[in-house]
Design a protein around this nucleic acid. Sequence first.
DNA 1: AATATATTTGCAACAATGATGCATAAATTT
DNA 2: AAATTTATGCATCATTGTTGCAAATATATT
Lengths: 138, 138
Amino acid sequence: MANEVNDILKQNRLSVTDSRTKILSFFLQHSGALSHADIEKNAQASFDRVTVYRTLQTFVEKGIIHLIPTTDNSIKYALCKNDCAPGHHHDNHVHFICDDCCKTICLDEVDIPEIKLPKGFKPQHSEMVVTGTCGQCK
Amino acid sequence: MANEVNDILKQNRLSVTDSRTKILSFFLQHSGALSHADIEKNAQASFDRVTVYRTLQTFVEKGIIHLIPTTDNSIKYALCKNDCAPGHHHDNHVHFICDDCCKTICLDEVDIPEIKLPKGFKPQHSEMVVTGTCGQCK
DNA sequence: AATATATTTGCAACAATGATGCATAAATTT
DNA sequence: AAATTTATGCATCATTGTTGCAAATATATT
């Protein structure tokens, strides 16, 4: 996996630094969505808060991770599994938030359906979040 | 409208106070989604920040307004137009965020489609947000 | 209509989250 | 290995949201 992390960073023309390597590894190890706090609390990576912010911002810009919409005031990130390019994300899968374990799960195999909008509205991107109980918590 | 505001509050067994009256009026006047900041900056209502927070929380609990999910760190609220009861919202319409004017619009007439989830997942509530260009901004 | 009770408000203080400038440190290029 | 570019960490600040408590206001009671 060390190589995979390295490759992803180089493919995106990012210098390979300690923080980037460890934060990206953390995402690869935890397939679900992570919050800034999750990453900051991660034992393996004790970086400055600012570094974590900047690393996450960089990853979003490069299309390595994507943001997940929430109704509480928390930002969550997850690895992009489709072919996302810098400044242009192609993730169009549904996200699931479990009311029990509070985990956010990317349902990579569930596409967001297209919908008909009222006249005049031009859609550019859709997000869909489903809450409920996940497989583990039923 | 003064009566309408009064009625809504009384129907929800809330004491009729200055802040609640004015904040609720503000929602009735502005059909779109509002952020905490929008309300705080509103000239007619110069309340303590804490009061605004608590009023909005109360309104959400009572089913008078609902939260709209976003990917940035902003919480947005909009009036519930369906029959939402305390602790039990029934809004299942799509929200539209315009990239140009940055307004959030409730598409009351567009229902969130039902989707098939992987085995084990039990859905409870769905949210859908579409970004793009709205009718005014095309 | 006046008082008693219950609720809400505003203040103070605090915690958490996020942003920016700049010197140091580390990575990449030559 | 040195020069250059880039990233990090620290200090500082702004914004956002929370909690406890006394004062103020609204509702209920007589």
